[in-house]
Simulated scan of single mutants.
Amino acid sequence: MHRLAAPALLLLGLGACSTPPPPAAPQPEASGPPAQRGEASYYGPGFEGKRTASGERFDPGANTAASKTLPLGSVAEVTNLETGQSQRVRITDRGPYVKGRVVDVTPKVAEKIGLKHKGTAPVEVKPVSAPTETAAR
């Protein structure tokens, strides 16, 4: 028994002396649409209850937005670059159709990120998630 234990201990000892594995390679960033920078504005009072491009009725108290490029049903984080305030929104509509503007948000979101008083603000729109299967329908 003593003869069998010595090789086993030797193997265990050699395993402890081996070099550690190399560090994991950095993971590539998630593919998808890149963040956009531009101006944001917000919907005026005449849109309440009207149908959006997604078919939903516009709710000025919701965390939703319009984008020309992000898929309907996707979620994005809109950050006011002047205030640093952010809100997550779900893309339910198309637009804005004013040069330099990248997103229209609801009055609720405009208030939360500090752009309601001025009407527009420079923002970054960062995609967070793709539309869910049910949202895509």
Rank of each mutant, 00 (worst) to 15 (best):
T79I: 13
K50M: 06
A40I: 01
A62Q: 03
P127N: 10
V89G: 06
A65P: 11
G46K: 12
G38T: 01
G84E: 13
A16H: 01
A130Y: 02
Q87G: 07
Q87N: 14
P34S: 05
G13Y: 02
T92D: 12
K68L: 15
M1F: 06
G13K: 00
L115Y: 04
S74W: 07
I113S: 11
G55M: 06
E133S: 12
K68G: 09
P122L: 05
G114V: 09
E77W: 03
N63E: 14
E133C: 02
D93C: 00
V78F: 11
Y43M: 03
T52P: 07
G114C: 01
V75T: 14
Q36F: 09
E39T: 03
T92S: 11
T83G: 12
K112T: 01
K68P: 00
R90Y: 05
A53T: 13
A136N: 10
L11G: 05
P26V: 03
L9N: 01
V123K: 00
C17G: 00
T52E: 11
R57E: 08
P34R: 07
A25R: 13
G13T: 15
K50G: 11
P33A: 10
P33H: 09
G46Q: 13
V89D: 08
T120C: 11
E56I: 04
P7I: 04
N63Q: 14
T92V: 15
L72Q: 09
P131M: 05
F47M: 12
F47E: 06
E77K: 14
T92A: 10
P34Q: 04
A8D: 04
T92N: 15
S86Y: 09
V123H: 05
A121S: 13
R51S: 14
A8R: 06
L81C: 04
D104G: 02
E29P: 14
F58N: 08
T132P: 07
A65V: 05
